[in-house]
């Protein structure tokens, strides 16, 4: 269910490309049989950008068949760091390195009610989930938000398939989404506390939903979102960590983690998930110069505000241009 499988890189071939909306390119990849991807799967793709090789994640929109076909749809963004430009330049016959479908946004079929919320290209993460919910006869709503109709991929097909379970909001048609009203409606219904909302879209939309969700005191575990790796509030930068009791002082590079730096320096630190989830790597903070960029989901807001602990596997010190210093108690 939740992503456990390690990524396996394989060679795939572009089988077909086509435009499914303004700026959105559908790319069909053929490769080793991958079976059918579970709803909420993505593939990682090795992209070539002006800055060198990099990895991007794209949701699997369709999959299956004996030939292991996987379809992704990619939005061309002018501000991108080169990933979408690379993907849009692909032509049938081109080779790409991809992983097998990886599951990090699993659909759970047993909820009393489901709301799926897609903003723009975020639709790609929810198309398959919606299809499965419909097949199962589940109680679901599918909300699709976009700026203009021509930029909303799969809109016509989805409206035809989901009928009145579908709500479409288009900014420039004067029907933008009222987030508080959407969340308020969920909260007011009998099944409110047993409704799961899964969303994928622009960070501003998702933040608004999160705020409204906690204002309405809906259970946090029923709010599911696809982030493709939490990125923190700051760019990663260098900082120095000191553990006086152990006589350790070492630099944490922008491309390393606090946990790795401590272990390399000889500290015996406990950890398990390395994703900021389990809390086993939490260390006591005695002093900090700079700001702690909490990137974990283990510490509560209140615990973060106290500023006296840090999840060493993902969180960092930032906001001071590489001059940050972190002093820790003994692990």
């Amino acid at each position: 269910m939740s992503s456990g499988a390690a990524a396996r890189w394989v060679d795939a071939v572009v089988v077909a490309v086509s435009d499914v909306a303004t700026g959105v390119r559908r790319i069909e990849l053929g490769g080793p049989p991958a079976g059918r991807a579970a709803p909420g799967s993505h593939v990682d793709v090795r992209v070539h950008t002006p800055a060198g090789e990099d990895v991007r994640s794209y949701s699997v929109v369709e999959s299956g068949g004996a030939d292991g076909r996987v379809v992704v749809s990619v939005l061309h963004t002018r501000t991108s760091r080169g990933g979408s430009r690379f993907m849009h330049a692909l032509r049938p016959g081109d080779g790409v390195r991809v992983t097998q479908p990886l599951q990090n946004f699993p659909l759970s079929v047993g909820s009393a009610r489901h709301v799926l919320l897609a903003g723009g290209i975020g639709i790609t993460a929810l198309v398959e989930a919606a299809r499965v919910l419909r097949l199962l006869g589940a109680d679901y709503r599918f909300v699709y938000v976009g700026r203009t109709r021509d930029r909303m991929a799969y809109l016509a097909e989805l409206e035809a398939l989901h009928g009145d379970r579908m709500r479409v909001h288009v900014d420039d048609e004067g029907s933008p989404l009222d987030v508080d009203a959407l969340v308020g409606d969920i909260a007011d219904e009998d099944l409110g506390r047993r409704t799961e909302l899964s969303m994928c879209g622009p960070i501003r939309l998702m933040e608004a939903v999160r705020r409204s969700w906690s204002d309405r005191e809906l259970p946090s575990y029923n709010l599911r979102f696809e982030t493709f790796g939490s990125s923190g509030w700051f760019e990663a930068e260098d900082f120095v960590v000191r553990v006086p009791e152990l006589g350790i002082e070492t630099r944490v590079g922008a491309d390393s983690t606090l946990l790795d730096a401590l272990i390399t320096a000889g500290a015996d630190v406990m950890f398990d998930c390395r994703k900021g989830e389990c809390g086993l790597c939490v260390l006591a903070v005695t002093e900090v110069q700079g700001t702690i960029d909490h990137r974990d989901v283990f510490l509560s807001t209140a615990q973060r505000e106290r500023g006296d602990r840090i999840c060493a596997c993902v969180s960092r010190v930032a906001g001071v241009g590489g001059e940050g210093v972190l002093v820790l108690g003994p692990p």
Binding site: M1, S108, V109, A112, L136, Y221, C273, C278, F298
Partner: peptide, 25 residues
Amino acid sequence: NSAGRCTSMPAQETINPSAMVPSYP
């Protein structure tokens, strides 16, 4: 819950979002 999502981890203030068990149709 019925979807298999973990809704409570008694010994901590947050819930690990990965914590779930498969729920079958």
